[in-house]
């Protein structure tokens, strides 16, 4: 399987995706505008609360090609953050102490050749680091085998995708053999102390639905994951984050190809929850692309919808303008406000 970009799929053009989100694939489909739902909830224009998190996408290269990937990441993606851009991020972090959390994502962030240098630089600034680890990267090559020890040395919080606690659903979404490698990687993380009861080495898992449906109750699912992974593989972890798939890139492609697009969007709309809308993660986060441009969230980043204020690049970061900006929204935002809500930290309501 290749990325949409490598396949020259029209969805690899962000504007095409936005057009489908606004008008459907046939051009005559319309859903109540997300902006209108926010207005009804007295949340429009959507403003930041306190910006505390830098979510940095250090590159689109990945060792996996997951069917639901909103980044369209894969081995054929060559977009990688340079050390120059990383240094600009470090400079901004140093000058803005309220940015307490740095959330590193990709692709597989560990595949950026300067990943470790960047982590060490962030740690020197005494910030809490989260790494979005796809697990299989730890098993992909000998040079990654020591990642659990590296994470531990730098007190990194590891957030790892595991779509389900059995092989069938995991491999359906992420590819053959992913479940087995993920289990081995989780065992390696447990061995160095990650995810154990009472351990400060945080290991949290991420569940994404393997299809055109919403996540079930996060609490109930967490209990099931804990029982099943402990019983079958002796694995422990701390929290499970249930995340809704947003209709962007490969998940949008899946929805269109399977004829589920309109029903899925209607499902998201029907599940709109004002409480979740009030707590969306874009109110506390700035997302930085591999090339240094700034976005309201990782999803807007993939749709190339930059922040709507002065200072659109990390090289001319303007904290006051970002704090006062209106967050850019569109129809994909229904994915973060459905049901219990969805963020990179799971449910929000």
């Amino acid at each position: 399987m290749k990325s949409l970009l490598a396949e020259h799929n029209k969805l690899s053009i962000a504007g095409e995706q936005i057009d489908i989100l606004e008008h459907g694939s046939s051009g005559d489909y319309s859903l109540i505008p997300f902006q209108q739902k926010l207005e009804e909830s007295n949340l429009y224009p959507l403003k930041p609360t306190v910006i505390s998190t830098f979510q940095i996408n250090v590159g689109k290269m990945c060792n996996q090609v997951c069917k639901h990937c909103h980044v369209d990441a894969g081995p054929d993606r060559k977009e990688i953050m340079t050390t120059e851009t990383m240094q600009q991020c470090l400079d901004v972090l140093a000058a803005n102490p309220s940015l307490q959390i740095v959330d590193l994502t990709g692709g597989a962030p560990e595949m950026n050749p300067n990943f470790r240098w960047f982590v060490e630089g962030i740690k020197k600034l005494d910030r809490h680091i989260i790494v979005r680890c796809n697990l299989t990267i730890i098993r992909a090559n000998k040079k990654y085998y020591d990642l659990p020890e590296f994470y531990k040395q730098h007190d990194i919080e590891v957030v790892s995708s595991l779509p389900f606690y059995n092989k069938d659903r995991t491999d359906k979404q992420r590819g053959d053999g992913v479940f087995e490698d993920s289990i081995k990687a989780l065992q390696m993380l447990n061995e160095v102390g990650y995810g154990l009861e009472g351990s400060d080495l945080k290991l949290n898992l991420v569940y994404n639905p393997a299809g055109a449906f919403l996540p079930p109750s996060q609490d109930a699912l967490e209990k099931e994951f804990k029982v099943a992974l402990k019983k079958d593989f002796g694995i422990s972890f701390h929290e499970l984050y249930a995340i809704t798939n947003l209709p962007i890139n490969r998940f949008l492609d899946y929805l269109l190809q399977s004829g589920n697009y309109e029903k899925y969007m209607e499902k998201l709309l029907a599940a709109y929850n004002p409480m979740a809308a009030a707590n969306v993660m874009c109110r506390t986060t700035i997302s930085i692309g591999w090339d240094g441009y700034l976005y309201d969230c990782d999803f807007n980043q993939m749709l190339e919808m930059k922040v709507d204020c002065k200072g659109k690049h990390i090289s001319n970061y303007n904290a006051a303008a970002l704090q006062n900006r209106d967050i850019v929204v569109n129809q994909h935002c229904y994915g973060c406000t459905a049901g219990a809500g969805s963020s990179c930290g799971g449910a929000v309501a």
């Binding site: 059995n166 639905p209 449906f213 919403l214 079930p216 109930a220």
Partner: peptide, 11 residues
């Protein structure tokens, strides 16, 4: 069917 599959039952 939707509810049961969403909640994690296998085929």
């Amino acid at each position: 069917t939707s509810s049961s599959y969403e909640k994690g039952y296998s085929d």
